[in-house]
């Protein structure tokens, strides 16, 4: 066989093998969690509080807690990230300072989440005296999500053709009018999907909420944003590593993992659907 054909086949096989390995790992993880967790996920599991030292009952408070914390995350990260992106992409001139800001934002995305957690303690729990609460935890997760939201929003704004802005200006639009009426509507889908992906990631984080509001065990639902709360990822961490009867609660841990996985996948699915719908509506035919 000719050498070029051989190297071609070799390269192709290598790439296929890499892809297969990645898909394989994902499949193994999913298989493991689904087969071992499916048995635990019943209606009662989803709607009951943990009982008998977390060896019985369900994970309702953790689901509700994660839901509330994530809502606060969204309320902080989506509008703020969107505004920062509009400023950077539409208003800021290309100077050394704005370039530094951009680099900083991208680097923030790489900061370990435990650092965000400790920062949240200093800023929200102690500094702003919000205590260990859903609010502190949600805001900390919001900070963690911001770099993603900003970057995704900026990318979305960049995909809007310059001719839309130019066309609006030529008709006597002010800068803000052009952005508001002729840029944002077409970037909104991208902004929203980016934000959802970031928030979905935040929903699965443990380290940032560890010191800022997540509770070890609270068999009732939070009554205000200043209450502590149970969260799915933290509950999972406890069930699988900190519990005194680890073997006994293993099915519950798998069930929790499955619910968390379903939640994150569900959010990603919503993002995909929104992106698809908006693409369909604004695509140049």
């Amino acid at each position: 066989m000719k050498k070029s054909i051989l190297s071609q086949r070799l390269g192709f096989s290598l790439l296929t093998a890499c892809t297969a390995a990645v898909v394989g790992f994902l499949a193994i993880i999913l298989w493991d969690i689904v087969t071992k967790g499916a048995g635990s996920v019943t209606w009662k599991f989803l709607t009951d509080a943990p009982r008998d030292g977390m060896t019985q009952g369900g994970i309702m408070p953790a689901i509700v807690g994660t839901f509330f914390a994530t809502t606060i995350t969204t309320v902080l990260a989506l509008p703020l990230g969107c505004c920062v992106a509009i400023y950077l992409n539409e208003y800021a001139k290309d100077t050394a300072i704005t370039r530094l800001i951009r680099v900083t934002i991208r680097n923030l995305a790489g900061v370990p989440s435990i650092v965000y957690g400790l920062f949240g303690v200093v800023l929200f729990v102690q500094g702003l005296r919000l205590g260990t609460s859903i609010l502190s935890a949600g805001l900390t997760l919001g900070l963690l999500t911001l770099p993603w939201t900003i970057t995704a929003s900026e990318e979305a704004l960049k995909t809007v053709p310059a001719s839309y802005r130019e066309g609006a200006f030529a008709l006597g639009a002010t800068k803000w009018q052009a952005i508001y009426t002729n840029v944002l509507p077409y970037a909104f889908g991208g902004i929203l999907t980016g934000a959802i992906l970031g928030i979905a990631r935040a929903a699965g984080e443990t380290a940032p909420i560890l010191f800022t509001g997540a509770a070890f065990y609270l068999p009732f639902l939070p009554r205000s944003v200043f209450d502590q709360f149970m969260a799915l990822p933290y509950h999972l961490y406890i069930l699988s590593t900190q519990h005194h009867q680890i073997e006994k609660v293993r099915p519950l841990a798998y069930g929790t993992a499955l619910v968390l996985l379903g939640l994150v996948l569900g959010m990603n699915l919503i993002a995909v659907i929104i992106r698809y719908k908006i693409r369909k509506n604004t695509k140049a035919v």
Binding site: S163, E166, G167, A168, A170, L171, G172, N182, K283
Partner: peptide, 19 residues
């Protein structure tokens, strides 16, 4: 400048209808 552009309209080389 907004007033200027409303008095002096423009059609571009590449047609740019909004979606």
């Amino acid at each position: 400048v907004v007033d200027v552009r409303r008095r002096v309209g423009m059609v571009f080389q590449k047609s740019n209808p909004f979606p």
